[in-house]
Amino acid sequence: MSEWKKMIEAGREILIARAVVDRTTSYGEFAAALCRRTGVAGFDFTTGAGRASMAYLLDRISEAAFEEAGGRLLGALVRNLGADDAGPGFYRLAARKGLAVPRTRGGRQLFWARHVCELHEHFAGIAGRPAAG
Results as ranks from 00 to 15, higher is better:
33 A>H: 11
71 G>D: 09
7 M>Y: 01
21 V>C: 10
86 A>L: 03
60 R>Y: 12
107 G>N: 01
82 G>P: 12
57 L>D: 08
130 P>I: 06
42 G>F: 07
105 R>K: 11
125 G>Q: 11
65 A>P: 10
95 A>C: 00
19 A>C: 05
41 A>T: 08
124 A>T: 04
8 I>Q: 13
58 L>Y: 03
119 L>R: 03
23 R>L: 11
40 V>A: 13
80 N>I: 07
96 R>E: 13
53 S>F: 10
129 R>T: 04
22 D>W: 11
101 V>T: 00
75 G>V: 02
7 M>F: 06
103 R>K: 09
70 G>S: 02
81 L>E: 15
20 V>M: 10
124 A>N: 04
103 R>D: 11
71 G>F: 03
45 F>H: 01
89 G>K: 13
88 P>W: 14
76 A>D: 02
90 F>D: 09
40 V>W: 00
44 D>E: 10
69 A>P: 04
86 A>G: 06
15 L>Y: 08
98 G>E: 10
100 A>H: 01
34 L>Y: 04
37 R>A: 14
103 R>S: 04
70 G>I: 00
126 I>D: 07
18 R>I: 00
45 F>E: 00
93 L>W: 09
122 H>L: 04
130 P>Q: 06
33 A>F: 06
19 A>N: 00
106 G>I: 10
102 P>M: 09
42 G>N: 09
41 A>R: 14
57 L>E: 11
117 C>N: 06
101 V>C: 01
22 D>C: 07
87 G>Q: 15
75 G>W: 03
83 A>I: 03
88 P>G: 13
35 C>W: 03
49 A>M: 11
9 E>G: 02
133 G>A: 14
93 L>R: 08
84 D>G: 05
17 A>V: 04
21 V>D: 08
81 L>G: 08
116 V>C: 03
124 A>I: 09
71 G>P: 01
62 S>D: 00
119 L>W: 05
47 T>I: 10
131 A>H: 08
93 L>V: 00
59 D>A: 05
40 V>L: 01
124 A>K: 06
8 I>V: 15
47 T>R: 15
119 L>E: 00
96 R>G: 04
96 R>H: 09
129 R>L: 15
13 E>R: 14
47 T>S: 15
61 I>P: 04
60 R>T: 02
91 Y>K: 03
87 G>R: 15
132 A>T: 12
88 P>Q: 12
123 F>S: 03
127 A>G: 01
23 R>W: 01
69 A>N: 05
82 G>M: 09
100 A>P: 02
57 L>G: 11
97 K>L: 06
14 I>M: 07
48 G>D: 11
10 A>C: 12
33 A>G: 05
92 R>K: 09
48 G>I: 11
90 F>Q: 06
108 R>T: 05
10 A>R: 13
28 G>E: 15
12 R>Q: 11
73 L>P: 00
97 K>S: 06
26 S>G: 14
61 I>K: 05
17 A>G: 06
104 T>I: 03
103 R>A: 11
118 E>G: 00
124 A>R: 14
103 R>G: 05
5 K>R: 15
96 R>N: 07
57 L>T: 03
55 A>S: 12
132 A>G: 12
25 T>Y: 02
133 G>I: 13
67 E>M: 08
27 Y>M: 12
